[in-house]
Simulated assay, not measured.
Amino acid sequence: MSTSQAPKRRITQRQIAERAGVSQATVSLVVNGKAEALSRIPASTRDRVLAVIREAEYVADPVARSLAGHGNHLIGIFTYEPAFPTASMDFYATLLSGIEGAAESLGYDLLLFTSAPVKEGKRSVFHPYSRIRLADGCLLLGREIASEELERMVETDFPFVVVGRRDTPGIPYVAVDYVTGTATLVEQAWEAGHRGFALLAVASEGESTRDRREGFTSALAGHGVEGDVLAVDPDDIASAWRWLRATEATVAFVESPADALGLHRQAAKEGIAVPDDLSIVVLADPSRAREEDPDFTRLSPPRERLGAEALALLSRILDPEVEVPVEAQRLTLACEITPGKTLAAPHAQPDQNGVSPS
């Protein structure tokens, strides 16, 4: 008969802190035994933490003890989708620039973790050869991150901040307010006279896509109107164009700048003038716009600031002398609007008798 047992799950520093009635930062200082830091902790507090540790048979990760969060000033960047393909660069280029600038000013070096294999277009930070604990903490980037992965990150007691809003409770993040930005553009189109609205979204259930959709639908619901919505296949813009024309919408809200450019080209092929015959509003800002590209009316997410604020938040979480309140671990930035030249009043529509208003 086998006497083997499942390995005992290691208690986390967060759980130790809760049992000892101290902060997680205090537990970290005790576990890592730095004389300079321990001198600031009352002996009674230190003894209480050590008693909980002995009772729980806690053994600190030796790599984490020697490397993570103790003055080596290394911040990891983990991307759940490849960061460098052309399709991803619109998002990642300025974001990484913001992270780099903040790292320089705060005295951090950056580690980009790339060894995780890509499976079905995604990675996992928990792959067998993960070296994420070489860093003090990590920024997580990705349109979609499974809630199970984020919950597991919290359980590991490893400091991290996600770039982008997440529904998973207890996740520190810095995000962009796409709901308000999208709703504001819908109101501008409504005030310009548009009554036929279509949304061509990215085929994703990530929070940023859902936030744009919420802004679109909620703003129209305020006027008692429902817009048409399509998840675009980026490899088949022609079908998306046919769908758009079938809706008879006078204004198209497009999530992806690349899709918007494709639709603009389709319009030109058919002699449809933008914005005279069809207005196009883009819900993102291309980071590599060419001079000959249309000047789209668009949302302009502050990507560079987004990256900088995410790293700044992580640096505060890492600081053992700083207590970051839970409510301060979720930051949402306003999304600017670039007026552009692709939103205009629609042509006067004929009434039911086919007569155009004078």
Rank of each mutant, 00 (worst) to 15 (best):
S4P: 05
A6R: 05
Q13L: 15
Q13D: 05
G21Y: 07
G21A: 09
L38Y: 04
R40C: 02
A43H: 10
R46M: 05
D47L: 11
L50T: 08
R54S: 12
A56F: 08
V59R: 01
V59L: 06
A64E: 03
L67V: 13
H70G: 07
H70Y: 10
G76F: 08
Y80I: 09
A83S: 15
A87Y: 13
M89E: 04
D90T: 13
A93V: 08
G101P: 13
D109A: 15
L111Y: 10
V118F: 06
G121I: 02
R123N: 13
S124D: 14
F126S: 14
F126W: 09
P128N: 10
D136W: 00
G137V: 03
G142M: 07
I145N: 03
I145D: 02
E148C: 11
V154T: 14
F158D: 03
V162L: 12
D177L: 02
D177E: 06
T180A: 10
T180V: 11
A183S: 13
T184M: 10
E187C: 06
E187T: 11
W190C: 03
G193K: 05
F197T: 01
A201N: 06
D211H: 12
L230E: 13
D235A: 11
D259N: 12
D259L: 09
G262E: 06
A267L: 06
A267Y: 01
K269G: 10
E270R: 00
P275F: 09
I280G: 01
A289S: 13
A289W: 07
D293W: 15
T297S: 02
T297D: 03
L306S: 00
G307T: 03
I317D: 02
D319E: 10
D319A: 14
A328N: 12
Q329M: 14
R330F: 12
L331P: 02
A334L: 08
P339M: 08
P339R: 11
L343H: 06
D351T: 04
